[in-house]
Nucleic acid binder design. Structure first.
Lengths: 189, 189
DNA sequence: CAATTGTAGTATCGACTCGATACTAATAGC
DNA sequence: GCTATTAGTATCGAGTCGATACTACAATTG
């Protein structure tokens, strides 16, 4: 038997997200476009590609391609051909893209969360992370967790170097900044 | 300064909802249609109208009208003219509508919540309710809270009657079932 | 190394969604 | 009664999204 509070909580998560999405058109960006900008602001360099973004959004490459066209036309994203793989495209936020994220409607919800939790959102965050992990496992999705929590992460393999850490999956050096971003390849340790 | 955990929690709420919405097409219902069915299953008799649903969804009457046309064609909802106000339309779930809600994709998320909270989702629920209250206040929205928590609710005004309670705003008798449903007019006590 | 198979991304089409506008009908206020 | 307001619908057009087909490149296989 499913506890009533669990189902009610699921309802409320939907309502909260709907509230955010319905107040979104201010900057002329739709929900998918906001999500893409947020993703690109937090993804490490292995993860800033259309395919990874499509995985993250639970969408298709075709749909994401259109989202990216729109964002590029607005000047918030630039696409460039990858050097490693010339089929692939590197995505990056422009300065304007980073600026518009300062007016992300999600910040309003974050303020409400801070208010409602009295400033300590850590327990809520931990619970939500556990829920997301369960939901992702059930849907065979990718976690898009933080690089340094990954089972392929090797800390401080080159001490003192600009990129002291290492990814054992991609065999690539990792800077401190890399290791704090989310990664399309991340798997729990 | 906004705590990092609050913003991250806001992110996760968005991701959870997106996961639910992306696995939705199973029954041939889109996210707005699911939300409408959920609402009608939980709304008291004053609240089962297109206008109240539009408020709830943060949408417009025109858009909701189309959602309702689709749901009526699928046989999940019936519309009938209101007796009190002949401009108004009463909405009701059909038996098929109630049945399809047993396959609501939100139930999957509720299961994940039950798993992640170890079966006691009450603290999470309380936090989410507080967040939603803050978000609604900020957006000048309606709360759609439970009838008996309303400042217009008068308990047991007609003891022993089938509808013992009373709404002081609408001046209408309220059954036990009425008072447990959500209401478009609800205001915190 | 040539041929095959697989992958990254884009273009395009069609069904659908949604907000805006305009409209009808009914209620409320004066 | 006359006007203003409200409930709901119809319709249009911009935009979204998934599906399909395609190009270009990479990886694999023999």
């Amino acid at each position: 038997m499913l506890p009533e509070a669990a189902l009610e909580s699921a309802h409320l998560i939907g309502r909260l997200d709907r509230l955010v999405r319905s107040g979104v058109a201010v900057e002329g960006l739709n929900p998918a476009q906001w999500e893409a900008l947020r993703y690109l602001a937090r993804a490490n360099r292995f993860s800033r590609t259309p395919a990874a973004l499509a995985d993250y959004l639970g969408s298709t490459r075709g749909t994401v391609s259109q989202t990216l066209i729109a964002l590029e036309q607005k000047g918030f994203v630039v696409r460039s051909q990858s050097r490693q793989d010339r089929r692939s495209v590197d995505l990056a936020l422009t300065r304007a893209g980073a600026m518009v994220l300062k007016r992300d409607p999600l910040i309003g919800l974050a303020g409400d969360i801070a208010t409602a939790t009295g400033g300590d959102a850590a327990p809520l965050l931990a619970t939500l992370q556990a829920i997301l992990a369960a939901a992702i496992a059930r849907n065979d999705g990718r976690a898009f967790g933080i690089c340094h929590t990954c089972r392929h992460f090797r800390r401080n393999v080159q001490p003192g170097a600009a990129a002291p850490h290492h990814c054992a999956l991609l065999d690539e050096p990792l800077s401190e900044a890399d290791s704090a971003d989310i990664c399309v390849e991340q798997e729990a340790a």
